[in-house]
């Protein structure tokens, strides 16, 4: 999973046409599983679970960086993921976090 984070104070925050194009490139190379851009955090809603049921508590919580969107990819190893992460548009001003997805398979140890 390639997660794209941005600075919440930046005015141009958000998923751009370049991001969409990059997603299409990943689809064409056969590496894209899915990708989505997220709406601005002003649209966020938080839900907390209490013993007496779920309670909606208004907007998102304040953070230093916010998730702008993600690319879920299936590629040849970690190096290729880093390579692709470095090519995500706007990654100069935003941060890309790469995390492996948990696998439902495994080997005995």
């Amino acid at each position: 999973m390639l997660m794209v984070y941005g600075d919440p104070d930046e005015s141009t925050l958000g998923w751009s046409d370049d991001h969409v194009t990059f997603g299409k490139c990943l689809a064409a190379s056969g590496e894209l599983v899915s990708c989505e851009g997220l709406a601005d955090p002003v649209n966020a809603t938080s839900v907390h679970r209490r013993p007496d049921g779920a309670v909606v508590t208004g907007g998102g919580s304040p953070r230093d960086t916010v998730l702008i969107g993600y690319y879920l990819i299936d590629c040849d190893g970690f190096e290729r993921a880093v390579d692709l992460g470095g090519r995500i548009p706007g990654s100069g001003s935003s941060t890309i976090e790469i995390r492996p997805v948990m696998d439902v398979a495994g080997l005995e140890m």
Binding site: V101, D103, V104, L107
Partner: peptide, 11 residues
């Protein structure tokens, strides 16, 4: 560290 759920459960 493992990215496998059954391995994590075992460990």
């Amino acid at each position: 560290r493992t990215t496998s759920m059954p391995e994590r459960d075992y460990l």
